[in-house]
């Protein structure tokens, strides 16, 4: 029982990381239906900005995170303007290939300038405190990352549901042409979405960097893929879905490693995901829109 509780705690903190990345993923998807494979790499860039801010400018972690978020918001907007905007009228899969191109570009440009070696966040960037609650070990990092994920989700949900920009986002997501007719500046709305999504990725990147201490230019690939899976699982485009998907994936992986065979972890985790999708083909929170004839 104690072990199960510990495993669930482990799963929640792993899931929180997936959720953090998945939030930005799903947001970008929601508005232009683009599987932004470069999202994980934007996260990586964010982690590097945070790293240099801490190690070279000597800022504290909060300032580093703000720097990273600003830098990545800008990067996200640039990527959108340069690489995705010309493809807005093209097929979604064409945009997907561009996203793969952007992803490779970010990875290998970083390798070119910063070598493929990992970098280590200076000790004490985030003062770690371990707690033991009735035999279950939790650290303040876990709590921090867990609360951050939930908080960011709530803020995002608020922005999308209750602000003017959010309304514009939903309108653009629903029907771009009608949104234009309603006087919404579609380009700006999409830019804002990318800025927010990329800033979220940067925040996740810095947190992951601090959480695991190390960052490297290819660190975005695996979490990026997992976050995509989490977002789809929750119902892609739906903000609470991304978070729930992230937590489910995290707990699933943890339980497979803990009680099944860790050598088969990804296979079993994917297998269960596919099962969930077969039962609920549009993800857990997905609306089953009936076929329009």
């Amino acid at each position: 029982m104690l072990e199960l509780m510990q495993q669930i705690v482990n799963g929640l903190s792993l899931g929180a990381i997936y959720a953090l990345i998945a939030l930005g993923y799903t947001m970008v998807y929601g508005i232009i239906k683009l599987i932004n494979f470069a999202h994980g790499d934007v996260m990586m860039v964010g982690a590097y900005v945070g790293f240099f801010s801490v190690s070279m400018l000597g800022t504290n972690i909060v300032v580093a995170m703000i720097f990273a978020m600003l830098a990545c918001a800008l990067l996200g907007v640039i990527i959108e303007k340069v690489a995705y905007k010309p493809l807005r009228r093209a097929t979604r899969i064409a945009a997907l290939i561009t996203a793969i191109g952007v992803s490779l570009f970010l990875e290998y440009t970083t390798i070119f300038f910063l070598t493929p070696q990992q970098r280590i966040f200076p000790q004490g960037t985030f003062p770690v405190q371990d707690y033991s609650l009735a035999g279950i070990s939790v650290s303040n990092k876990d709590i921090f990352i867990f609360i951050s994920a939930i908080l960011l989700m709530v803020i995002l949900q608020f922005i999308v549901k209750n602000t003017k920009t959010g309304k514009a986002m939903r309108a653009v997501s629903e029907d771009k042409d009608a949104a234009v007719l309603m006087g919404i500046n579609v380009d700006n709305t999409i830019s804002v979405t990318f800025a927010i999504g990329s800033a979220l990725a940067a925040a996740a990147g810095v947190m992951i960097g601090v959480y695991y201490n190390t960052i490297n230019p290819l660190m975005g690939i695996l979490p990026g893929l997992k976050a995509f899976v989490a977002a789809v699982l929750g119902g892609i485009g739906i903000i609470p879905g991304a978070m729930v998907g992230g937590f489910i994936l995290g707990i699933l992986e943890t339980l497979v490693s803990g009680y099944g065979n860790s050598l088969y972890r990804d296979a079993v985790a994917f297998g269960i995901l596919i099962l969930i999708l077969l039962i609920k083909p549009t993800g857990i929170f997905g609306k089953n829109t009936g076929e329009k004839v």
Binding site: L263, Y264, A267, F270, L277
Partner: peptide
């Protein structure tokens, strides 16, 4: 047979998952 009922990105994830499952099984 089971996955082709899915559409779009959901199918993409399912096929990606199966590809990875095949790889993990071979690994073991």
């Amino acid at each position: 047979v089971p996955t082709l009922r899915l559409k779009g990105d959901y199918l993409a994830i399912a096929t990606l998952g199966f590809g990875e499952i095949i790889r993990v099984i071979l690994q073991n």
